[in-house]
Design a protein around this nucleic acid. Structure first.
Lengths: 187, 187
DNA sequence: TTAGGCATGTAAGGTGTTACATGATTGC
DNA sequence: GCAATCATGTAACACCTTACATGCCTAA
């Protein structure tokens, strides 16, 4: 039940469910995604558990915002989670599942198309990550040494995305070359 | 609903739910895990959809085995899935979620311990993958050129695991060194 | 006036995990 | 006799996705 913990962590400054969703989109989405339909019930549950509270604030545009904050008990719960040993979690990668059975396709050109499409997907992911990282770099003069303690760890998760997706890119190219060589294809 | 597709793919030769679970453990677990509690209902559902059928065979030890096979319609369903464009799926990586908030710990020695634990986890994953890959290599003289079409693609998924976990290992070491340098720690 | 961003939510359904229940056979 | 491996499954719960419902404000 890690979404609760992440929401807890995100509430360093008071924020609404909508704000939290934006934080996910901006800086967590490369290792954890969440929809509003999941965030709102989570905020409700954490409030019921006494780990959050909120006040309502009228919005400039649209309905009233519920601004949530961590309570003292919320702070402890967050600390406790951070003391848990690291876990790698379950992996489920659809494109590798398909790759595993690709021999059934029995059509090298089509198989290569699969990897060409994948190459494209990977390039897009990498572009987002590189954009985010250079935004960061342009904000700090002696990047990454001059990062604040807070940003130091957040930037590490970005670095992880960059490392992993770069490895996937190299792997995907290797697959393409092996297929081209094995079946004597062009481009 | 990819587990159904994977189960379908795994039934190149007739097998029981129990056999399928073993296949997951042996060669798919690094990109897709599945428990028996999920496999049995999936086999039932695929059979109801006419994509599988089965016969019962007495077991040497234990209750009768249900041996499943793909039907002709199962073959088509598998092919259709393989023609879907590649998808990277949702990512949820607990250790990165923790990393993102690690500044709250406010204790560099403890933080370093977190990454030491992670380094250990990663080393174990890599060891399994390397073992599996050298098993492959020892079976084939001119590895990987001499792989059969079937094994050619299966081995690629292993190669992916190796590439990705090696990148994670390098990242984890970078994190450890940055922390040691930043806070002036030893070991 | 209509589309889009802001802002809240619920409902239904799919996917996955943990725990439990049953029972045969083999080896210690 | 007991634990481990083989072999089947169900039930309860947790987690996540998709679609829907509501309503305000702003800019084209």
């Amino acid at each position: 039940m890690s979404l609760s913990h992440i929401v807890l962590g995100l509430l360093d400054e008071p924020a609404s469910g909508y704000d939290i969703k934006n934080k996910f989109n901006r800086s967590l989405v490369h290792f954890w995604g969440a929809e509003l339909a999941q965030i709102y019930p989570t905020l409700k549950k954490l409030t019921a558990q006494g780990l959050l509270d909120y006040r309502e604030v009228p919005s400039a545009k649209g309905p009233a915002r519920k601004i949530y904050r961590r309570t003292a008990r919320g702070d402890s719960a967050l600390l406790e989670w951070l003391c848990d040993p690291p876990s790698t979690g379950a992996t489920r990668i659809p494109y590798l599942a398909q790759t595993y059975f690709l021999n059934h396709l029995d059509d090298p050109a089509r198989t290569l198309e699969f990897f060409n499409g994948l190459k494209q997907l990977i390039a897009e992911k990498l572009q987002h990550l590189q954009q985010a990282n250079s935004d960061w770099a342009s904000h700090y003069p002696e990047f990454p040494e001059s990062l604040s303690d807070e940003d130091f760890y957040k930037q590490m998760t970005l670095e992880n995305g960059l490392a992993v997706w770069t490895a996937r890119q190299a792997w995907c190219d290797m697959c393409r070359h092996r297929i081209i060589k094995r079946y004597g294809l062009k481009t």
